[in-house]
């Protein structure tokens, strides 16, 4: 098994773990961390699968992951701002009564 494939499989594992957390957890901060885990898993898959035959790293995959990290940070920051405001106004750490709307 090549190291690249190993990275990709580890990435898939992280993706699934994060997704499970995303679906099961209700605490807002934990859901956000689960989202970041899913993101890291995706990036690992992206880098791990994109191996060139000569063994050199693929610059395109790295550029993509870099862009992806920037997007993920922006999304995380937005989520944190909204969550802080939600906590300040309601004193709650989860979105209760989700099912009823």
């Amino acid at each position: 098994m090549s190291p690249g494939l190993l990275y990709a499989l580890a990435g898939m594992l992280l993706f699934v773990m994060g997704l499970a957390g995303f679906a099961l957890l209700r605490h807002l901060l934990r859901r956000l961390m689960a989202f970041n885990l899913v993101g890291s898993g995706t990036f690992l898959v992206l880098v791990g699968l994109a191996q060139r035959p000569d063994g050199e790293p693929d610059p395109v995959a790295q550029a993509l992951v870099l862009t992806g990290i920037v997007v993920a940070i922006a999304a995380t920051a937005l989520a944190l701002v909204l969550m802080r405001r939600w906590f300040d106004l309601t004193g709650r750490t989860r979105l209760d009564g989700e099912a009823d709307e």
């Binding site: 999304a75 989520a79 909204l82």
Partner: peptide
Amino acid sequence: ALRYLFAALAGSLAFLLGVALLYGA
């Protein structure tokens, strides 16, 4: 907004994983 954000982010990452697989293949 938070519900929207979480749903949309989950969707984006599923899409991105698909992008990764297509690029790898």
